[in-house]
Amino acid sequence: MSENAKKYAGDAVKKDEGGLWETVKVIIQALLIAVLVRTVLFQPFNIPSGSLIPTLLIGDYLFVSKYSYGYSKHSIPFSPPLFSGRIFGSQPKRGDIAVFKLPKDNSTDYIKRVVGLPGDKIQVVGGVLHINGKAVQRERVEDYKTTDLYGRTVSVPRYKETFPEGTSHFVIERDADRGYWDNTEIYTVKPDHFFMMGDNRDNSTDSRDEASVGAVPYENLVGRAEIIFFSIDENSSLWRPWEWPTHIRWDRMFERIR
C-alpha cells in the first residue's frame, strides 16, 4: 500500500472514531439533561389506579412539578441518601394533589390529595370529611358513572367538596356513605406530616389506613401534580398507537389538575 493510501485510510479511521465519539457525547449530554429536568423541574407520572376518580382517571399521564415543595432525597431517581430533610422547601396547600413515596417502603410512588396539614385533626363521619371538628362543606351534584368491583358500569353519588380555604373539587362515594372508611377515628396529624386522601373515597388506600399508608412525612413528598399531557382509555395501551384515534381522551389533553 502506498504512503498516500495508508495516510488516507488512517484519516478515515480517525474520522469514524471522531464521529462515533461525537455521537456518544451527544447521547450522554441528552441523558444528563433528561436526568436534570426530571430531578429539578418535572417528572412524568401515569395514573395506575382509580383512587382519584373523578379528578384523575386510569390512563392519565401527567407532569409533576418537582420544585413546588423543594427537594429531598426522593427528588432524585432511586432516592440516594445524599441528605435528609428538604432544601428550598415549601409546604403543600390543602387541596393539592401530590405524588409521594409510600412511608412504609420509601420507594413506591403514590398520588393523593392533601386534606390535612400538620397539627390538624381529621375524621370522617358518615362519609363527610371533618377538619378540626368542623364538617367540610359537601354539595350533592349529578351522579358519576364508574365501574363496580365486578367491572359493571354503575352510577354513584358525586359531591362538590369545598375546603375551609375555599378551594373545591369533586369526590365520589361508590358505596354511598356506608363504606369501610366512611366512619373513622380522629387522626391528629403530626408535625412535618400530611394527611392524604383519594377523591374516590370508597376505593382509596390512603392516610385513613395507618397500617398501609398513614400520614406522609414532608420529606417523602415528590412533587405537585400540574397538568395532564396525555390520556388514553384504561383498556387500551400507550404501546398500541393504532388504537389512539379512538381511545385517546382528547378532552383531557393539557387539562390543569385541581
Rank of each mutant, 00 (worst) to 15 (best):
L41S: 03
V136N: 03
G18T: 08
Q91K: 15
A211R: 14
F195K: 00
Q137K: 15
F194A: 03
G116Y: 00
V213K: 03
G133S: 05
F45V: 11
S72F: 01
G214M: 12
D11W: 13
I58C: 13
S231C: 07
P77D: 09
Y69V: 00
M197F: 10
K66W: 00
L129F: 08
L32T: 04
N235D: 14
Y71L: 08
V189E: 04
H74W: 05
S65I: 08
Y110R: 09
V189W: 05
I227S: 06
G179F: 03
E243L: 02
P80A: 08
R208C: 03
I232E: 02
F170V: 01
L82C: 04
N220Q: 07
A5S: 15
V213S: 10
Y144R: 01
F254E: 05
A176N: 15
D143I: 03
S168D: 02
E22N: 12
Y150G: 13
K145V: 12
L52D: 06
F195C: 03
Y67Q: 08
F170P: 01
I172G: 01
N183L: 05
V124S: 04
G59M: 07
V128M: 01
V171A: 09
Y71G: 02
A98P: 04
R249Y: 14
I228D: 02
I172F: 04
D251W: 15
R252Y: 06
G59E: 06
K25R: 13
R113K: 08
A5Y: 14
H247S: 11
F42V: 06
L32C: 12
T246N: 01
R240I: 14
